[in-house]
């Protein structure tokens, strides 16, 4: 039996938005530690890894580890039926094929219930090639700062953030650099990752030459995180 109650559905809504941007369905692993997910997009270019600790729920009960195959769009539709300050309860039987979701208004005068059918997810599902990629962004990190540059068909653009400076919106930028590095990525995916921005005030980009980019957003005060991994573009 799995049962978890969250006092505010906002985090779950933002989290599902941040996941649905990359994947259609995923296996959500439920254990006594909380809820986690790791899934690649259909083209195997990017990966999303999410963890929401049991502390995000009260109470959180998980008698046996479960893997729930969830169609993210469907869950998103159900979540849209809740108000932001609703209390949400998730329930699943150990051998069931349904995830029950209950939303209650804080004063208890309204309650809505949904039963979502779980799907068997074939982890080895064949990937579809993406025929077109968006434009590329090159990220260059040196001791002077962080520079994003895009070469388009008709125009070029670049943005630079300095180590001790502040971004346009006044947010601080801090850089922890071992070696300078330059990597190129498909902008399209970075745009997808920004879907997670409402979950956190700060984003951390980790880059190393010839390895995937890691983009991390922390969830709440130690409640968990969502991380995206993105394969770089390679020189031919």
């Amino acid at each position: 039996m799995f049962e978890a109650r969250m006092s505010d559905t906002t985090v779950m809504k933002r989290l599902m938005d941040a996941i649905t941007t990359l994947i259609d369905d995923g296996s959500f692993d439920i254990s006594s530690k909380g809820i986690s997910l790791q899934a690649m997009d259909s083209s195997h270019v990017a990966l999303v890894a999410m963890c929401l600790r049991n502390e995000a729920f009260d109470p959180f009960r998980c008698d046996r580890n479960l893997s729930l195959g969830i169609q993210c769009k469907q869950m998103g539709k159900i979540l849209k039926c809740s108000a932001n300050n609703d209390v949400m309860t998730l329930k699943a039987e150990d051998d069931g094929d349904v995830l029950n979701m209950v939303f209650e208004s804080p004063n208890g005068d309204r309650m809505s219930e949904f039963a979502m059918k779980l799907t068997d997810i074939d982890i080895e599902q064949s990937c579809r090639d993406l025929s077109n990629f968006g434009e590329s962004v090159t990220i260059c990190v040196t001791k002077d700062g962080l520079k994003f540059s895009v070469k388009g068909d008709s125009s070029n653009a670049s943005m630079k953030f300095s180590q001790n400076g502040a971004g346009d919106d006044g947010n601080d930028v801090s850089i922890d650099l071992n070696d300078p590095c330059t990597l190129t990525f498909a902008v399209k995916y970075l745009n997808h990752f920004t879907k997670a921005a409402p979950l956190s005030e700060r984003v951390t980009l980790s880059l190393s030459n010839d390895t995937p980019l890691v983009v991390e957003y922390k969830i709440g005060d130690g409640l968990g995180h969502i991380r995206y991994y993105l394969a770089p573009k390679m020189e031919e």
Partner: peptide, 14 residues
């Protein structure tokens, strides 16, 4: 010219 890398070449995918 650049080609899009895939995560499979960086991680062992089981």
């Amino acid at each position: 010219a650049t080609t899009q890398g895939r995560l499979d070449s960086f991680f062992k995918v089981s």
